[in-house]
Design a protein around this nucleic acid. Structure first.
Lengths: 117, 117
DNA sequence: GTAATATATGAACATATATTCATAAAGGAG
DNA sequence: CTCCTTTATGAATATATGTTCATATATTAC
């Protein structure tokens, strides 16, 4: 009573082995997943949109996104760790801006896809 | 004792209003987030990789990803709902394949980004 | 020194998500 | 019809994640 016999072989064992052999390393896939996960939250997308328009401090972002300063700060930390934003200090104020040119291409691809649905 | 005075205005109120006015609709942002969320999981990324190489049935995918058939089936449902995969029936067997040409461009952008870290 | 401001952070909580298990549904073979 | 196979699905569970609250840190002004 095997669960996975699968006689459906439209593909040969050799082909399957070959395909399996060429899959990116588990670590790479994990990193890719982490990368996409960052974009998979509307609060972070809003932050990224606003920063794509203008360098902004945390309080301004909180105003624009209409969310607590603490929430924004937590999300900015995540974005920082993933190198999507950077900041410069000026007194107690931190001015955030985008740190990655790929963000715009990524937005574009996503919009293209969504427009076709 | 306001929490958000923010005198940091490197940006004028008018500019902020303007930027806020042009942000995509909340619904659009929500959809973008959902879209990215789909890619933000290593199991789904593996499935997408394998399907990019060959049309496959559920049991074969379970073998390749080395995960239970049920788990694969649940993930395939999600991928179906987001129109990233499609399938054709042949008897009791379902052959899955990719349903979106953007997937490859998306993979590429992500890899580019990761290689720069 | 104190007071006020901007930001960061830890704990707590609620919600979302991925996986497993058990089982249902549907088709093919006998 | 019954048995077997392939896939889908609902419930349960464990884990991850986003937000809030309270508070810490750091800088500036007085």
């Amino acid at each position: 009573m095997k669960t996975l016999t699968c006689l459906c072989k439209s593909i040969s064992e050799e082909e399957m082995d070959d395909i399996k052999k060429h899959i990116p390393k588990d670590n790479t896939i994990q990193n890719m997943a982490e990368f996409f996960k960052v974009f998979g939250d509307s609060t972070r997308l809003k932050i990224l949109y606003y920063l794509s328009r203008h360098e902004l401090c945390v309080a301004d972002l909180a105003l624009l996104v209409n969310m607590q300063q603490s929430a924004i700060s937590h999300q900015l930390k995540l974005l920082r760790l993933n190198r999507l934003v950077k900041y410069r200090k000026e007194g107690t104020t931190n001015y955030y801006s985008l740190d990655d040119e790929h963000i715009n291409s990524i937005f574009k691809v996503a919009l293209e896809h969504l427009q076709e649905l």
